Amino acid sequence: MYITISPQKLGDSFSTSVTDFIEYLEKENKDLQPDHQEFFFSKDQERISPKEVVRAIDHNTSKLKSTEPRYYSLTVNPSQRELQHIGNDPEKLKTYVRSLMKDYASCFNREINGRPIQSSDVLYFAKIEYARTYKGTDREIRENAPFSNRIAKLQNDIRKVDRGELTGSIKELEKEILRLQKEAPHKLEGKIIEQGMQKPGSQTHVHLVVSRKDRTNSVSLSPGSKYKASEVVLQGRTIKRGFDRDLFFQKAEERFDKQFGYRRNYAEAYSSRKNLLHNPKLYYSKLLRLPVSERKLAMQLIKLPVQSLPPIPNAKIRFAIKQLQKALEVGIRSGSIGY
């Protein structure tokens, strides 16, 4: 499970309306008949229109400065394995998101009238999307770029030769294009993956727009706070502040596993991914000690050939870590851990 939390945009000031973002989230509805369009949903409502979302978020911004975000964008991105486990069922995903927002609320170190923040205090709207397209920042696009750029130049050269503006053999240029197309590292159904192409497999995910202010439009709830938990004295009153993102991501994972009886592999766990980033030796060491079946699945999830991990005695663990690190780095560069 991969979750992101972002302010409405980066910059010195923020738009006073959520309109542009909501219009962006309507992209999958543009070519659909009304009966087949996807609506927004909230804590206790279904079939909410874009106009209702804009009205609710835009009117819930009391006392916010132009340098403060009016809303935050959350995306809930289940892996393809997690989607397969729930049958790619949008209703199950809705149920999960509604439960997840209880965890979101509980991770604020804030109080309203002396009580902890609850999900009923959070003003949010969510929408399910079913497709993703490749963007310029995706690894496949970046690694294909030298080939795509060269092909584009050759195609332009062919047009120039055809118009008599350039001398050369169109046949040889076309032959070079075919060679580049074969050598490009990432292809989909025989075609070079390019920006804008739809990604394969189940890509169901959820976008949420969450108001910066609580439902009463009086308390600021910022998941972008740099504090996990702290207190500050304002006008003689002690105010709690902060949001624990780390705890939220951990709870999100635990919520999914418990709600759907999902058996999470080591390679999928949030704690493992943190170790991979901050303490890779510990990550590799634990991976090597997994039972054979679990280790085999972990290697499949990170797209690394299973045969590269034979049983290794504890006495050789240090050497194995160095060798595995090199192998894993190659595997991670050429694949994905599904997040």
Score class of each variant (00 low, 15 high):
residue 208 L to H: 02
residue 235 Q to A: 04
residue 214 D to W: 07
residue 286 K to Q: 05
residue 216 T to H: 13
residue 286 K to T: 01
residue 295 R to Y: 06
residue 222 S to M: 11
residue 287 L to W: 05
residue 231 E to L: 12
residue 273 R to G: 06
residue 294 E to M: 04
residue 319 F to K: 15
residue 199 K to R: 03
residue 276 L to D: 01
residue 273 R to A: 11
residue 218 S to R: 15
residue 247 L to F: 10
residue 206 V to Y: 09
residue 279 N to I: 11
residue 208 L to T: 02
residue 218 S to V: 12
residue 260 F to S: 09
residue 204 T to G: 03
residue 269 A to I: 04
residue 291 P to D: 08
residue 288 L to G: 08
residue 262 Y to S: 12
residue 232 V to A: 06
residue 289 R to T: 06
residue 240 K to Y: 02
residue 241 R to I: 03
residue 314 N to Q: 12
residue 262 Y to Q: 08
residue 298 A to T: 07
residue 210 V to R: 02
residue 281 K to A: 14
residue 308 S to V: 01
residue 271 S to N: 05
residue 250 Q to T: 11
residue 248 F to N: 02
residue 249 F to I: 00
residue 230 S to L: 03
residue 212 R to E: 10
residue 279 N to W: 08
residue 194 E to F: 02
residue 204 T to P: 02
residue 212 R to T: 15
residue 237 R to E: 00
residue 294 E to S: 15
residue 291 P to S: 12
residue 252 A to K: 04
residue 274 K to V: 13
residue 233 V to E: 07
residue 307 Q to D: 08
residue 216 T to F: 10
residue 225 S to V: 08
residue 249 F to H: 07
residue 206 V to T: 14
residue 264 R to N: 03
residue 317 I to Y: 10
residue 242 G to W: 01
residue 288 L to N: 14
residue 262 Y to F: 15
residue 262 Y to W: 13
residue 254 E to G: 06
residue 275 N to Y: 07
residue 319 F to A: 15
residue 232 V to W: 05
residue 193 I to T: 07
residue 199 K to M: 13
residue 305 P to L: 09
residue 266 Y to T: 09
residue 223 P to H: 10
residue 211 S to K: 08
residue 210 V to L: 08
residue 290 L to Y: 05
residue 225 S to P: 04
residue 291 P to Q: 14
residue 263 R to M: 05
residue 288 L to P: 03
residue 251 K to I: 00
residue 224 G to V: 03
residue 302 I to R: 06
residue 217 N to L: 07
residue 268 E to M: 15
residue 290 L to S: 04
residue 263 R to Y: 02
residue 280 P to R: 07
residue 194 E to P: 01
residue 269 A to S: 09
residue 280 P to I: 11
residue 297 L to N: 06
residue 260 F to C: 13
residue 292 V to N: 07
residue 217 N to C: 10
residue 204 T to N: 06
residue 254 E to Q: 14
residue 286 K to F: 00
residue 209 V to G: 09
residue 200 P to T: 05
residue 206 V to F: 06
residue 220 S to L: 12
residue 243 F to I: 00
residue 258 K to F: 10
residue 203 Q to I: 10
residue 198 Q to P: 00
residue 267 A to H: 04
residue 286 K to C: 00
residue 301 L to E: 09
residue 310 P to V: 10
residue 255 R to Q: 11
residue 209 V to T: 11
residue 313 P to I: 14
residue 227 Y to H: 13
residue 271 S to G: 01
residue 267 A to P: 04
residue 287 L to S: 04
residue 218 S to E: 14
residue 315 A to P: 00
residue 226 K to L: 09
residue 317 I to H: 10
residue 242 G to E: 00
residue 283 Y to C: 01
residue 200 P to I: 02
residue 230 S to N: 11
residue 225 S to L: 13
residue 194 E to Q: 11
residue 237 R to H: 01
residue 278 H to E: 07
residue 318 R to E: 15
residue 226 K to N: 09
residue 277 L to D: 01
residue 287 L to K: 03
residue 194 E to G: 06
residue 222 S to E: 04
residue 210 V to C: 03
residue 264 R to M: 13
residue 285 S to H: 09
residue 270 Y to K: 15
residue 279 N to V: 08
residue 292 V to P: 01
residue 267 A to R: 05
residue 201 G to N: 14
residue 295 R to G: 01
residue 241 R to V: 03
residue 279 N to Q: 10
residue 318 R to F: 15
residue 221 L to H: 11
residue 223 P to T: 04
residue 296 K to W: 08
residue 202 S to G: 03
residue 248 F to D: 00
residue 258 K to Y: 14
residue 292 V to W: 14
residue 308 S to G: 05
residue 266 Y to V: 06
residue 261 G to Y: 03
